[in-house]
Simulated assay, not measured.
Amino acid sequence: MSIPKLGIGTFRLQGDVVIDSVRNGLEAGYRVIDTAQIYGNEAEVGAAIAASGVPRSELFITTKIWIANLSRDKLIPSLKESLAKLRTDYVDLTLIHWPSPGGEVPVAEFMAALAEARAQGLTRQIGVSNFTVELMQQAIDAVGAEAIATNQIELHPYLQNRKVVEFAREHGIHITSYMTLAYGKVLGDPVIQKIADRHNATPAQVALAWAIKLGYAVIPSSTKRANLDGNLKALDLRLSDDDMAQIAALDRNERLTSPQGLAPAWD
Rank of each mutant, 00 (worst) to 15 (best):
N231T: 14
I153F: 05
S78L: 09
N151K: 02
H156D: 03
M1G: 11
Y30D: 01
A84G: 13
L232C: 12
Q37G: 07
S57T: 15
L75N: 13
R198E: 12
L228D: 09
A108H: 09
R118G: 01
L70N: 11
I76S: 07
D92L: 14
K163S: 11
P220C: 15
A43I: 03
N130Q: 03
I212L: 14
Q37F: 08
T94A: 06
S222H: 10
A147S: 12
R118F: 05
G121L: 15
A108G: 04
D267Q: 07
L13P: 07
G127A: 08
L155K: 08
A43Y: 03
D89S: 15
V206F: 05
A217D: 07
S129C: 09
A47Y: 11
I8W: 00
T150N: 14
S21G: 08
L208G: 11
E134Q: 13
D197P: 00
A149N: 02
A245L: 11
T94V: 13
D267G: 12
Q152G: 11
V107F: 01
A217N: 05
E134N: 14
P259A: 11
D92A: 11
T62N: 10
P220L: 12
Y178W: 03
K64E: 08
N161C: 11
V206T: 04
T202D: 03
N69A: 15
I175G: 13
I175S: 14
Q152K: 13
T123L: 02
I96R: 01
I219S: 02
V91Y: 04
L159P: 05
L181H: 02
G53S: 09
T94D: 05
I148V: 08
D242K: 13
D20T: 10
